[in-house]
Design a protein around this nucleic acid. Structure first.
Lengths: 333, 333
DNA sequence: CTGAAAGCGCTAACAA
DNA sequence: TTGTTAGCGCTTTCAG
């Protein structure tokens, strides 16, 4: 059943049917009803591919993320998908993993599917080596590229993110000012926001005229139990700490497991601060104090910015929001 | 840049360019190289919409789920997306929420986008009231419908699921046989698998010639803290229990919070068993004993079945896998 | 092995 | 207000 069939059965031209379908007002009420009746009778839906070919869009946005099973990224995808649907856009989801080649491959795949824009979810898409971001800049020549939690300065690339630098800066200062002297900074990503957080940690020390012992900055990638074991090893090597700031709630839960294993009292003898305020922050025990980086807000902003771009409105190429510390049971201030 | 441009620059017809693009063997090595050179020089990619129009497919599968931010569903989506990409299919993701009308709306939306199949992720898509599943059966007249964790008997609908009935049956028997007398069954869904689990619980009692006090079967929907409070209220009303079987890890974590609040020792005085063996089972403390319903396996099976359908191979309309109990710290057997 | 041309189903400019 | 028709860019059949 196509537009010709409908036009024939309704005794009008295909143009009229098309007008009816698309809500064009230049149709008499009488013909409109006549056509609608036939459309409903045969349960006709216009062919999306033909429409796409003519209009050069299928109202689809590509979503690229490293791993949609990561609870944090999963939430982001959820928010974005919801917002996009409100605007009549669908989401083509691609999980790239963390390796550069695959990211490029999937981005080009989305481009070849002619999506109207691509949203890169997660700061891990932005590399320090500008050369490695070239493929994104290239893609931005075809469609607007939206970055969630990352920023790249190039035409047609827009960022929506949280001020991770200040969040970490402030929590570090808070710890220092409340008598904590040996703060371990534990992180698992060299991504754009990963770097900002680390810098915040560093600068909090400098600003107070303190010097950091570099062995208090540890990079580790692994699951919860591996993180726990990593920390056990660290203490075996003689490193002691009275607080841990992590770049991610998963690491913080690992730290919690570590404390439990070693019989360390949290927060009395060890303060732990997570990042993202993801669902697992309330699953663990004690519940995690965590930095909420306003995921829903930045997702909403991302989509509304995109819609403005489509509508030809002028938009900021970067929108930054403030994080918020959510105090729970792993800190005592 | 389209196929005409390329054909012109290469000095061949568009048919030949098309053959080269599609790896048709009826092209001389010489022309193939000539055409490929031009294609690469101009970085040409065929227009996916035009191709879709001609072939009536854009190699896209619709994925419907209630809530992609739910860690369990998020994992399922991740597995499915990975598998589909290996087979050169992309995923169009729609989150429907839990209300019937929206489910129907989104299913039809996917259909109108002409996806090649739709995968319904999560047993909540299957209703007890067969009337309510009618829209799915209707959709199956257009494309194969794949159900993950649910089953509907109708043409062109295929299911991949875990034997939730036996899993719950066995764990209930296990508890009964290890001296537990007051087992609370806590569930949050009347879905297909929700019903199977509940029946397993019931039948374990019957088979041992025991009768269930219906107040030990509780339905509750809410987050972790609400679940905790719900259980507190239950005890206030005088209900006591020595073990809790839940239909979902989230509920189990709520139970854990309840135990902590009331100072109940787990598993000594209260055994807790979760379901799904999702990531949060290892985040909490003590870590959760949980029933692993083999999500990755059923996802893989779902996609490979679908590919077989596309290839015209005969496939089972239902594939059932066994669950596995993963013992951790909330049980003592 | 290659090319010409029909067709996929729709939108929109133009004519009436 | 309605109809005619030219694309949109590709695949594929049919001739050669």
């Amino acid at each position: 059943m196509n537009i010709y069939d409908i036009s024939q059965k309704a005794g009008v031209s295909i143009a009229t049917v098309s007008r009816v379908i698309n809500g064009n007002s230049n149709v008499s009420e009488k013909t409109r009803k006549k056509v609608m009746a036939v459309i409903e009778q045969y349960d006709y839906t216009p062919n999306a591919f033909a429409r796409g070919l003519g209009l050069n869009t299928m109202q689809t946005i590509g979503i690229l993320c490293a791993d949609s099973s990561d609870p944090y990224l999963a939430s982001a995808i959820y928010y974005i998908e919801q917002m996009l649907h409100k605007e009549q856009y669908d989401s083509l989801l691609c999980c790239t993993g963390y390796n550069q080649e695959d990211k490029e491959k999937y981005l080009n795949l989305l481009l070849s599917k002619k999506v109207d824009s691509i949203i890169l979810v997660g700061s891990n898409f932005v590399e320090a080596d500008e050369e490695k971001n070239q493929y994104i800049k290239e893609a931005a020549k075809s469609v607007p590229i939206m970055l969630l939690n990352g920023a790249i300065d190039a035409p047609n690339i827009y960022s929506s993110l949280c001020d991770d630098y200040h969040a970490t800066f402030q929590i570090t200062q808070k710890l220092l000012k409340t008598g904590h002297e040996r703060i371990l900074y534990l992180y698992n990503s060299h991504s754009y926001s990963g770097k900002k957080k680390l810098k915040g940690f560093h600068d909090a020390y400098s600003e107070m005229g303190l010097k950091i012992n570099e062995s208090y900055i540890q990079y580790f990638v692994g699951d919860i139990h591996e993180t726990r074991d990593f920390l056990v090893n660290l203490t075996k090597k003689g490193l002691t700490f009275d607080s841990i700031i992590t770049s991610d709630d998963n690491l913080a839960v690992g730290a919690l497991k570590f404390a439990k294993l070693k019989g360390i009292s949290v927060p009395k003898d060890l303060s732990i601060i997570g990042y993202n305020n993801s669902m697992i922050a309330t699953c663990c025990d004690p519940e995690l104090t965590s930095i909420d980086n306003k995921l829903e807000t930045i997702c909403k902003n991302c989509v509304s910015t995109l819609m403005n771009i489509f509508n030809g409105n002028s938009v900021p190429f970067r929108s930054v929001f403030s994080a918020e510390l959510v105090k729970r049971e792993t800190t005592d201030f």
